[in-house]
Design a protein around this nucleic acid. Structure first.
Length: 274
DNA sequence: ACCACATCCTGTTAGC
DNA sequence: TGCTAACAGGATGTGG
């Protein structure tokens, strides 16, 4: 499932491929993927055709294909979305919902579960979602994280997944960061001390940076814009490792459901109370 | 403002 | 072996 490192890996390639190039045609756009958009599907097609891409940006897990005048095509990969560059002559893979023709290539969005999203964002950011701080930005400090969590009764794990608080973490990296900082995921978010928040902020930056260095984590769906899987899955400590030994103490990794999402942790290294 | 819960969706896997 | 049911989860809408 694409989280910040996966989306950023795709962004880097798409930015180099699309910047300064024209969208010659919108060869396909499935209106079912257009959600919370400043323009309806037909108008998105009309507006996109012939535009020259300025650059491709990322905010949290969202991609913005930006044009002049501040307008942008908003893309989100949801759970199972892929964004790939393929020859325009190649047969569509199943569940292809968008095809932007640029020369003899197409930028294609493929998303079996259709949890992803295509939207138009106007000059004032209409159609964009309000997001919290980006954890790879300079402003993401332990003090800032502590301030964001203060007063919250919800489980820390759930708060880490709330994109309005921190933008970019998903289930994998939330579990990994909590493991590295040795914090129990079910703790109320507001119970975080300043020193714990500093350790957690460091761990979040670390897991995201390491994954980015490995071009993301691939379980089943994720591939980069050239169709290659990431390599980071072999570096995960707890996610998807239920009943396997903790890399630090060898106790069995536990899986519980927190806020409706599976959470993996070591009950020895991440105790409920100290 | 905050939080719990349901909803969307289909490929994969577990269970009978 | 073949069918059915459970499961995976990011963002959002609703209702408390």
């Amino acid at each position: 499932m694409p989280e910040l490192p996966e989306v950023e890996t795709i962004r880097r390639y798409l930015d180099s491929f699309m910047s300064g190039r024209r969208i010659d045609a919108v060869d396909h756009l499935d209106a079912r993927m257009v959600k919370r958009s400043a323009l309806p599907a037909d108008a998105v097609i009309a507006r996109l055709t012939g535009l020259v891409v300025e650059r491709v940006e990322r905010a949290g897990k969202f991609l913005f294909v930006r044009f002049n005048a501040g307008e942008a095509l908003v893309l989100h990969l949801g759970m199972s979305g892929r964004l790939v560059v393929e020859p325009a002559s190649a047969v569509f893979k199943p569940h292809t919902h968008l095809a932007l023709r640029m020369g003899d290539q197409q930028v294609r969005l493929i998303d079996p579960r259709r949890f992803g999203r295509i939207a138009w964002s106007g000059p004032q950011g209409e159609g964009a979602t309000k997001l919290g701080i980006d954890p790879l930005s300079g402003g993401f400090t332990g003090e800032r994280l502590h301030g964001v969590m203060r007063g919250r009764k919800v489980a820390l794990k759930s708060a880490l997944l709330n994109q309005a608080l921190i933008a970019g973490l998903g289930n994998i990296y939330a579990d990994e960061a909590l493991f590295l900082s040795r914090i129990y995921p079910g703790r109320p978010a507001g119970s975080l001390t300043v020193s714990e928040a500093q350790a957690l902020a460091r761990a979040i930056r670390r897991v995201l940076r390491i994954s980015l260095d490995h071009r993301g984590t691939s379980f089943s769906d994720y591939v980069d814009a050239l169709g290659h899987p990431g390599d980071n899955q072999q570096y995960l400590n707890v996610y998807g490792r239920t009943l396997q030994p903790c890399p630090r103490c060898h106790h069995a990794i536990v899986r519980v459901v927190i806020g409706g999402r599976s959470s993996h942790f070591c009950p020895v290294c991440q105790p409920k109370a100290d």
